[in-house]
Deep mutational scan, measured.
Amino acid sequence: ELIWEQYTVTLQKDSKRGFGIAVSGGRDNPHFENGETSIVISDVLPGGPADGLLQENDRVVMVNGTPMEDVLHSFAVQQLRKSGKVAAIVVKRPRK
């Protein structure tokens, strides 16, 4: 059984690379294997702001206090874009 651990990460936006993450998932883009609608970190740019803080497959729980459960992919992207220079991101990942 999976035990999820929650992490809060504060990312500083890089002028060229943004937050250095890509997200997939969302209500309109469920996971191809299990139908899960979570917003998921799909890519972490090496050397970017999120490197060492976020991991691929982290589930995004909140962005700047806005819940990311059962939202559209575009909504999640929009929340990240409009967060200015700093984003507080809450993620969960299975305990190893």
Rank of each mutant, 00 (worst) to 15 (best):
G48L: 03
D14W: 03
P30R: 04
D70F: 05
Q6E: 15
Q55H: 09
A22C: 12
I21Q: 02
D51R: 03
K96N: 13
G35I: 04
I3P: 05
L2T: 09
F32I: 09
K13Y: 09
H31N: 04
M62A: 11
K96T: 09
G35W: 03
V77N: 11
M68K: 02
V44N: 03
G35D: 10
R81M: 12
S24D: 06
V61R: 05
V63Y: 03
D70E: 12
H73T: 11
S38M: 04
D14T: 15
D58R: 03
I89A: 01
N57Y: 10
G65T: 12
S15E: 09
N29S: 14
P46V: 07
L80Q: 01
A50M: 00
K13M: 09
N34T: 15
E5M: 05
L80K: 00
N64L: 01
V44R: 01
K85H: 09
K13I: 05
S24Y: 04
S42P: 01
V63M: 12
D28F: 02
R59Y: 05
D14H: 15
K96V: 13
T37N: 15
P30F: 10
V86R: 10
K82T: 09
V91A: 05
Q79S: 14
V60G: 02
V61A: 12
E36M: 08
K82W: 07
G47M: 05
G65Q: 14
M62W: 05
Q55S: 08
I21A: 02
I41P: 02
G84W: 07
P67H: 08
T66D: 05
P67I: 08
R95N: 11
F32M: 06
E33T: 15
I39Y: 00
E69S: 11
M68S: 02
E33N: 06
S24H: 09
F19R: 01
A87G: 09
S38L: 01
G20H: 00
R93I: 02
Q55G: 04
G26C: 01
K92L: 06
I89S: 01
Q12Y: 10
K96M: 06
Q79L: 10
N29D: 03
N64W: 00
P94H: 09
H73V: 10
P49F: 01
I39F: 01
G52W: 02
S74Y: 09
D51P: 00
G52Y: 03
K13S: 10
D70N: 13
G47W: 03
K85A: 07
S38R: 07
F75M: 05
V9Y: 09
V63P: 00
Y7F: 15
G65M: 05
S74F: 07
D28E: 10
P49Q: 03
I39S: 01
K13C: 06
L2V: 06
L2W: 09
V90R: 11
H31V: 04
G65I: 02
D58P: 01
G84Q: 11
N64A: 03
I39Q: 00
G47H: 11
L72F: 14
W4P: 04
S15F: 04
L53A: 08
E56C: 11
G84A: 13
K85M: 13
K85S: 09
G65L: 05
L53C: 07
T10Q: 14
P46R: 14
L80E: 00
F75H: 09
N64M: 00
Y7W: 08
E5Q: 07
V60I: 10
L53K: 15
R27Y: 10
P94W: 07
S15R: 10
E33W: 07
L2G: 05
K92P: 00
E56H: 11
K16L: 10
V61D: 04
H31W: 06
G18D: 14
G20I: 04
T66I: 12
T66W: 05
E36H: 05
P49M: 06
R81D: 14
S83V: 10
Q79A: 14
E69D: 07
M62S: 14
K82I: 11
S24A: 15
L2E: 10
G35R: 08
V40W: 15
R59W: 07
W4Y: 13
V61H: 12
E36D: 15
A22K: 08
R95K: 13
P46C: 08
V61W: 05
E33H: 11
V71F: 00
E33Q: 15
L53I: 13
A88T: 11
D51S: 13
T8S: 11
G48P: 00
G25K: 01
P30V: 06
M68E: 00
E5N: 06
P94C: 12
V63C: 06
V63N: 01
P67R: 09
V44P: 02
S74H: 12
E5L: 06
D58G: 01
D70H: 08
V40Y: 12
S38N: 09
I41N: 03
K96G: 05
I21G: 01
L45S: 11
D70P: 02
E33K: 14
D14R: 05
E69N: 12
A87R: 02
W4I: 05
F19M: 04
P67V: 11
Q12A: 09
V90C: 11
S15A: 12
E1I: 13
L2F: 14
M68Y: 06
K16A: 09
